[in-house]
Structure formats: C-alpha cells, structure tokens
C-alpha cells in the first residue's frame, strides 16, 4: 500500500498554523515565567521555618504533581466558574493548569539544587554579615541554578509540549489549529506530521542553546 502524501493541503493553510504558533508561543512564555517563578517560591516555602508554610507548599507540590494537567485545565475552565463568580477564558484555564503543574515540578528541582549547596557556603556568607535572603540571592541560588539547568531545561521543553493540551478548551494554539485544518481537509496524517516537525524545529535549537549556556557557566568550576 502506498500513501500519497499531500502536504500542499497543509501549507495552503499556513496562516492558520502561524496564528496557532503565535498562540503556542504566548502560552509557553507565560507558563514558563509563571511556573518557574512560582516554583522557586514554593521551594523556598518548603524550606521555611514556619510550619504552616512548609505544610502548604508540600500540599501544593503533591496536589499538582499527582493530578493530570488535562484534568486541571478542564477543571479550571468548566468547574471553577461554578464555584466562584469568575469568567475563565481558555487562555487563563490553560495558564493555570500548565503553570501550577510546572511550578510543582520546578519546586522540587529548585529544592534539590538548593539542598546540594554545601552548608559551608551558607556559613561563609553569614560569617561576613549577609542576611539569609542575601545569601540565597547572591551565593546559593546562582550556584544551585547552574547545577539544575539541565533539569529546568527538561521542564521548559515539557511546558512547551504541554501547551498542546490547551486545545481541549479550544484555546487557539498549534494543536487546535491542526485539528481544525485536519477536519476541514481530511488530512490528519500530514497535519500532525507538520505539527510534530514544527515542535522539533523550535525545541531542538533551544535545547542546544541551553547546553551552550550550561558549558559557559561551568567555566568557573
């Protein structure tokens, strides 16, 4: 059996894919920034000396790590407006689902990175009069982040790919646009092949760049 590939039917709709790509990138950047930042604060919360904060952060991590992102997105979109008088857009629902899940994973990565820094580094910084916050910002985090760049890169790649889940609430991103094109032109094979290729073409160079950054940062070791 030979299949006659017909990519023309996909590329004729390049503008639809371009709009989808813009939506994907927007979602990716927001979730990356929000997820990674929130993750850091959750990690710090897990190290707090306030017990309620530790408890809350741990609960957050376990809750969002152990529930599917797809379910979370659907829940925020359909269920939350029933409980609270707020209108949630597909974009918001996707941001919440993907960011909170990523924050939970990122928190564990940050925590591991911070824990891997020798106590002597904290002590040396405290011994010249630095506060805990200064020590964290100037001494511990810069070193910890170097060590966790590979793990954070994985998270970033994961976030980029998770953006496709937003199609479940009809947020306009690549996957959603692909579904649309495929249903109009009856060419799912070509469409999903092209979408997979777009992800690969975008993600691979990003991953290479982070490898280079990692090598540059390792110079001082």
């Amino acid at each position: 059996m030979t299949y006659h590939w017909n990519f023309a039917s996909v590329f004729d709709n390049w503008w639809a894919l371009a709009i989808g790509l813009a939506g994907t990138l927007k979602l990716f950047v927001v979730c990356l920034v929000f997820g990674m930042t929130l993750g850091l604060f959750v990690a710090l919360g897990r190290r707090s000396h306030r017990r309620w904060l530790r408890w809350l952060s741990t609960f957050f991590v376990e809750f969002f790590r152990n529930t599917p992102v797809l379910v979370q997105i659907l829940w925020f979109y359909y269920a939350l407006p029933i409980l609270a008088p707020i209108e949630i857009s597909p974009f918001m629902a996707a941001i919440l689902g993907i960011s909170l899940n990523s924050a939970a994973y990122a928190a564990e990565i940050y925590r591991g990175g911070i824990q891997s820094i020798e106590p002597g580094q904290w002590e040396a910084a405290r011994a010249i009069g630095m506060t805990g916050a200064q020590t964290l910002r100037r001494i511990v985090l810069p070193q910890a982040i170097r060590r966790i760049i590979p793990a954070l890169t994985n998270r970033g790649v994961e976030i980029f790919k998770m953006s496709t889940l937003a199609s479940v609430v009809a947020y306009v991103e690549l996957m959603q646009q692909g579904k649309l094109i495929a249903s109009l032109n009856f060419n799912p094979l070509e469409v999903y092949t092209v979408i997979a290729a777009i992800f690969l073409i975008i993600l691979y160079p990003i991953v290479r760049v982070t490898y280079a950054v990692e090598r540059r940062l390792a110079r001082s070791d």
Binding site: G120, Q121, A127, Q143
Partner: peptide, 12 residues
C-alpha cells in the same frame, strides 16, 4: 571575621 578550615570560597 571568620576563617574556616575548608576555606568556603564562593566558587562562582
């Protein structure tokens, strides 16, 4: 001021 046995310089 304090000086440690293991130096504890900031490697970065």
């Amino acid at each position: 001021g304090m000086v440690f046995q293991q130096f504890n310089l900031f490697p970065h």
